[in-house]
């Protein structure tokens, strides 16, 4: 049976040790727990004290300044797509990586499609929580769709302009 949701990285399915907690559910001691931003704001001291690791689920409308003081202690940030046309997670991902220096697991969830994953990777996401109809095969295909880019991504690729310069000098 195909599970309701699963987690992939750029190569395919990966194990997921994170446990999503409802706002009123107690945090099991030592577990890796994923909570809402509202709960994190209220209970971060207690959560960091009991849980093994803490992750937060945010939307594209997040004010990153509010999240900033907690970032060093977070093991996972899940950014939610309201719809597949919601472009805010791309900016949020890039800011978390490039401006706020977040280095741990950055995960997209919601109605995005495989064809968007390459762009998400380039904006700093490394894992993807997807539904049963999401094709891991299509994801693999999409990730390989482009090999050169005009812009620099979070992965610090050489841009086309830089590759041209390198070629000229060689």
């Amino acid at each position: 049976m195909v599970p309701a949701s699963r987690v992939l990285d750029r190569n395919g399915p990966i194990a997921d040790g994170w446990q999503r907690l409802a706002d009123d559910a107690p945090a099991p001691a030592g577990a890796s727990v994923l909570v809402s931003f509202a709960r994190l704001k209220n209970e971060h001291n207690a959560l960091f004290a009991t849980a093994g690791a803490v992750g937060v689920d945010i939307g594209g409308d997040v004010e990153l300044e509010e999240l900033e003081p907690l970032l060093p202690r977070l093991g996972l940030i899940v950014v939610r797509f309201a719809t597949m046309r919601d472009g805010r997670p791309f900016s949020v991902g890039r800011l978390l990586r490039e401006r706020y220096g977040f280095t741990r697991d950055l995960r997209a969830v919601g109605d995005f499609i495989p064809d968007q994953v390459l762009f998400l990777l380039r904006c700093g996401f490394n894992s993807f929580e997807v539904g049963p109809n999401f094709s891991a095969e299509a994801l693999k295909h999409s990730v390989a769709a482009y090999t050169v880019w005009y812009q620099r991504g979070v992965e610090r690729n050489a841009t086309v302009a830089e590759m041209r310069l390198a070629k000229e000098k060689a």
């Binding site: 791309f90 762009f119 380039r122």
Partner: peptide, 14 residues
């Protein structure tokens, strides 16, 4: 044209 082509961050604007 080149910069905006398949821009990773700005391809799903409002």
């Amino acid at each position: 044209r080149q910069w905006s082509t398949f821009h990773p961050e700005f391809s799903w604007l409002p």
